[in-house]
Amino acid sequence: MAIRKKSAKNPPVLSHEFILQNHADIVSCVGMVLLLGLMFERTAEASIVFITLQHSVIFPAAERTTESTSLYGYGVKDLATVFFYTLVAIIMHATIQEYVLDKISKLMQFPKTKQSKFNESGQLSAFYLVSCIWGTFILTSENYISDPTLLWKARPHNMMTFQMKFFYISQLAYWLHAFPELYFQKTKKQDIPRQFIYIGLHLFHIAGAYLLYLNHLGLVLLMLHYFVELLSHICGLFYFGDENYHKGFSLWAIVFILGRLVTLIVSLLTVGFHLARAETQKQDVITGNFNVLAAKIAVLSSSCTIQAYITWNLINVQLQKWREESTFQVPCVKKKRTTSKGRSSKKGTENGMETSNRADSPRNRKEKS
């Protein structure tokens, strides 16, 4: 579906403004070309690589079931699939921006600085909400919520279900689409390094869980992280509507600390017990077994490092806010003291004029008499 932002001027074709205004139309045209390739026999095989999940293995039906099951691994063809769903993510981003966030911004009449933050929180809130619902459904269908010990009891395997692989492909596509969105949304230069770190950390950990076949562990940790981030951005949206709203932030601070602690506990239990009790302790890239000491240390150090980094950033932000509030309150107190001293030191003054110069003062009355 083509999405076009209305503007009074028509910029030149392929110019900077033209790409910014019509990037969703351009991306949708590329996606339509890949879809139309399915209609022709010569191009169908190439188009299928972009649209459907690849590297599937069909297992014969078990004794109790009559249907065969298909599981998925990963390979080079996944790059094409991630590229196609990155295009889909850009189109969905433009749809939410134009038909939801822009209309709310016009009603609320946000300034430009607040509008950019509102758009960021709105986009991420929608993504985190969908991801939390989707991830919870996967964990429920595979009985990981009813029995969390399956994380470290289950044997390591190198296969994923359809929903699990599609979830990871979608996650990688979404965070990859965030890089061109920095250009499309005209992000400020001072905000680009922060955004690059934020996007890069998500891509690094999601890709690591996907490539090391730590799918369920990665999914549980993502759900914990996404839930905390969802609560944070929802509180931010309420704050944009009413600046006096502060109730949700105290709840978010408690959930944030609990989320970090649960993340560390789950990582230690899963990596420590599950991988230590595995039958094979040798690395085999072909079969997807990375159960070696180096991989364990890398996973645990990465998990602990990112939790420490996020917590440190939160502490710095809170300290900066407290400093700004204290510097804002001190000048106000000084102004009140100076104004009160000025009024008391000037004896016999009223409205900026000395009362001794008035005609009805006692000294003037004596001089007249």
Rank of each mutant, 00 (worst) to 15 (best):
L34T: 08
K336N: 00
N158Y: 10
F238I: 10
G208Y: 13
G236M: 03
T349A: 13
S131T: 09
M160Y: 12
E45K: 14
E243C: 02
I96M: 08
H93N: 06
K282W: 11
A178Q: 04
T149G: 00
M223F: 02
A24M: 02
V88Y: 03
L53W: 01
D147S: 14
L14P: 00
L251C: 10
R260V: 06
L319H: 05
A308V: 08
T140C: 06
T65E: 15
R363Q: 08
P331A: 03
D242R: 11
R155T: 13
H157R: 14
T161K: 05
T113I: 08
E45A: 14
N143K: 10
R365I: 14
A94I: 01
M159S: 12
S70D: 06
F83G: 02
A276M: 08
S28V: 09
I254F: 15
R365P: 00
K282L: 11
V100I: 15
Q318N: 05
F179V: 10
L212C: 12
P148W: 09
E354M: 03
S267I: 05
R337A: 13
L258E: 11
H233T: 04
Q97F: 03
M1F: 14
D147E: 12
F167A: 01
E243R: 07
I254Q: 14
C29V: 13
R358S: 13
F167V: 01
V266D: 09
K347G: 02
Y245C: 03
V100N: 10
Q21W: 01
P60D: 12
S28G: 03
P111H: 10
F50C: 06
D284N: 13
S303T: 12
I199Y: 09
L182Q: 01
K282Q: 13
G352P: 02
T355I: 13
D284T: 07
L107E: 11
Q185S: 06
L212W: 13
A295I: 01
Y245V: 01
I58F: 00
S232G: 10
L35I: 12
L79C: 08
D25W: 08
A173I: 04
P180K: 05
N289I: 07
S170K: 05
A24K: 01
F40E: 09
F328I: 04
S15L: 07
L224R: 09
V262S: 05
Y213R: 07
S15G: 13
L172C: 15
H246F: 15
T305H: 10
A8Q: 15
V76A: 07
L124E: 10
I145R: 04
I197D: 05
R42D: 05
Y309P: 01
H225T: 00
Q190P: 00
F166M: 12
E142T: 14
G75C: 12
R155L: 11
E325I: 07
V100R: 10
K165A: 09
A94C: 04
C304I: 14
V299K: 00
Q115S: 11
L14T: 07
